[in-house]
Design a protein around this nucleic acid. Structure first.
Lengths: 204, 204
DNA sequence: GTTTTCGTGATACGAACGTACCACGTTGGT
DNA sequence: ACCAACGTGGTACGTTCGTATCACGAAAAC
């Protein structure tokens, strides 16, 4: 029954299976046989579409970061037609918080990758982890824009505040992952910090 | 040549070897043979002092958290004889930043443990990761104390600020680990946030 | 219509891992 | 002085993992 098959779609499907099993048992414990079983296919096919395990892991990381970008833009877009800088920044930051079960799995695996890249040079060479400062630049730009519009104190250091917000969101995210904090609590803390920076807000 | 040996000291030595190899190759890649080689002993001895690998990992975590506590108190103590709340809080928070190579290894392994505990129930059951809110209570107390002393704005929400500071320090720490930020940059951002909370500082 | 390529299954292999077992010298108890 | 417990070495076993190999049916190419 071998019909012609879309390799990219197949790879994406296997990649999703990889993320699911990684979220359940930990990225370190993921084997090719587990991924195959999760995807409902044979081990041979996982080998066929990704020749080696390293390839599989690399593709999983790429897929995950791309999905993350899509999540951010989707969330920003859902902030309204003509959202203010505050709404955009808030949408951007709250994407980093694991709220439902899906995003929880998502962030667990992505954080595992980031930590893995510290000791694995093949992973560290991936461009997806090399250029994570795009978010920093984006938030910095939004804050400068808000400052020009008079929404921020005039002496605000946009970049420092951007770095602070991003690191805070990341830290809150992991604390939610490890069960030290509830998603609601983390969101509230993040909002509190935003309220401080944005002296006046214009809407949701 | 088997003289009577201090089991606890032996275990601590093996634990240090475990941390070293975990920092070099990743916690997931640590095997008992690696630990034995790093400690300069035979595999059999690692088995002898820790019957199972799970025991070894659990002990490594315990040792690491204890060492972390000692680091914090040592750093706080080095803040001066009669330090103000600001100095104490700063000492506490900067302990979470990987500055030199040793603390870098330290934080990498500890973060790996925390992430591992999300999917490993045996690790999650350990009390060292169950009660990490002690730091939150401590910082909250210090901030309240500072507020009473007039060092903070009277309407400061001590607990929210404490949570913010700790999550920020954790986030900055991991960003330093992954090479996204330099230790100096992270320290500066942390100080900036402290300067905001403490409107006036009294020294060091 | 034949031939080649593609998708898939089953299985085997070598390495590494955690663990268990056996043996032996040394030390402390009595 | 003898005996039991301790510390240590060497090694083997069973499992699991990533990878490679063989085989085969179906579709596409010509």
């Amino acid at each position: 029954m071998p019909k012609r098959v879309d390799h990219d779609e197949r790879r994406a499907e296997i990649g999703r299976a990889l993320v699911r099993v990684a979220a359940r048992r930990g990225l370190h414990a993921v084997g090719m046989r587990d991924v195959a079983a999760e995807a409902g296919i044979s081990l041979r096919l996982v080998q066929y579409y990704f020749r080696t395990k390293e390839n599989l892991l690399l593709h999983g990381l790429q897929q995950l970061t791309e999905e993350f970008g899509e999540r951010v833009t989707a969330r920003v877009r859902s902030a309204g037609e003509n959202p203010g800088p505050r709404a955009v920044v808030e949408a951007l930051l709250t994407t980093a918080l694991p709220t439902d079960e899906e995003s929880r799995a998502f962030h667990l695996v992505l954080t595992s990758y980031a930590l893995l890249a510290v000791t694995d040079e093949a992973l560290a060479a991936q461009p997806y982890l090399q250029r994570p400062d795009a978010a920093e630049d984006a938030v910095t730009g939004l804050l400068e824009q808000a400052r020009e519009a008079g929404l921020l104190a005039p002496d605000t250091d946009a970049r420092t505040e951007a770095i602070t917000l991003l690191a805070l969101a990341a830290g809150l995210g992991t604390s939610v992952l490890t069960g030290q904090r509830t998603p609601d609590s983390a969101t509230e803390v993040l909002r509190h910090q935003l309220n401080r920076i944005f002296r006046r807000t214009q809407s949701s």
